[in-house]
Simulated scan of single mutants.
Amino acid sequence: MKIYQIRCDNRYRVPLLVDSKASESYLEGKEWISLLDSWQPLPFYFYSDPKDIRKGWDKRADICAYLEGLFIPQSLLDTIFPAKPPELEFSPVLIDGEDWLLLNCLKTTKDYDPERSKFHRDNDDRRQIYMIDYVVIHDPTVESVGLFTLEDSNRSTLFATQTFVDHIHQLGLKGISFREIGILEPR
C-alpha cells in the first residue's frame, strides 16, 4: 500500500495567519502535544499570490494545507473523519470569518525500515529527520488513523495512507495534493 505526503495545491488559495507574531505561542508544540487546553481560535485569511491569480489559480479550497498544517471546514469534519480517531485533534480557526478546523496530528510512528527509507537528518545530537525522500513504514496502526508523522522527525511532513487519499478523492475535495513518498508494509 502506498504512503503519500500531503501538500498544498497551489491552484487554490491558502490560509495565512492574520497576525503570525501574536499567534505564534498558540501553535508552539503542534504535532508534538495536545493544544486544546490552551487553544484560542486563530484568525486566518485566504491568500493568492498575484502571479497565481493571473494564471487563474485563486479558487476557493474545500480542504487545504499550508505552513500551519491541514485545514478543513467545520461543516466537513464528519464527512472527512467519520471515526474521529483520538490521535487527531481539531482546533477551531476562522478563515475569512468562516469556521474551519486546524488538524493537530498526534499519531506518530518510529516503525519504519531505516535501510530502505531515505531521510535527511540534522547533524546535531538529536539527529532529527528534517526531510524525507522515501519511507517504508511497517506500523499497521497508521492505517486506522489515516494520517501520521514520523516520531523522530521535526514533524513538518504529514503523511497519508492510500485509504485516506482514496477517501478525499471519492469526496471530490479540492485544495490539497498528494505526493507518493513510500509504502506501507505491515510486519
Rank of each mutant, 00 (worst) to 15 (best):
S48A: 15
L27V: 09
R187F: 08
E185F: 03
L94N: 01
I3M: 00
I72D: 00
E185H: 03
E89F: 00
L70V: 14
E87L: 09
L36H: 10
P92W: 02
E87P: 02
T163N: 12
N104F: 02
M1N: 04
G97Q: 04
G175Q: 05
L35E: 11
P140S: 09
E24H: 10
D113P: 05
F81R: 04
L76E: 06
L103R: 03
N123H: 09
L36K: 12
N104Q: 11
R121K: 11
M1A: 10
S91N: 15
A61Q: 00
S23T: 06
S153L: 10
D133C: 03
V18A: 12
V142N: 01
I53N: 04
Q40T: 12
G56H: 03
I132G: 00
A22G: 12
P186L: 06
P114I: 09
S75C: 06
K107A: 11
D58S: 12
K118D: 11
I80V: 15
E87Y: 05
S117I: 05
I6W: 04
E143P: 03
K51I: 06
Q5S: 13
G175T: 07
R179G: 07
H120Q: 12
E143Q: 12
R126P: 03
L106R: 09
A65F: 14
Y112W: 15
R11N: 11
K2L: 05
I129A: 07
L173I: 06
G97I: 05
A65C: 10
E28F: 08
V142T: 03
Q74N: 07
S91G: 04
D62T: 01
T108M: 13
W39A: 02
A61G: 01
W100V: 04
V18C: 07
S144P: 01
I63K: 03
M131L: 12
S48E: 02
S144Q: 12
L17S: 05
S91C: 13
W100K: 06
G56D: 03
T108G: 14
D99V: 01
V165R: 15
F119I: 04
Y112P: 02
G69K: 05
C8N: 14
G29E: 13
K84Q: 15
P82F: 03
E31F: 11
P50W: 06
D111C: 10
S38C: 06
K59A: 11
P82I: 04
K21F: 09
T157I: 13
L158I: 14
G69E: 08
T79Y: 02
L147F: 07
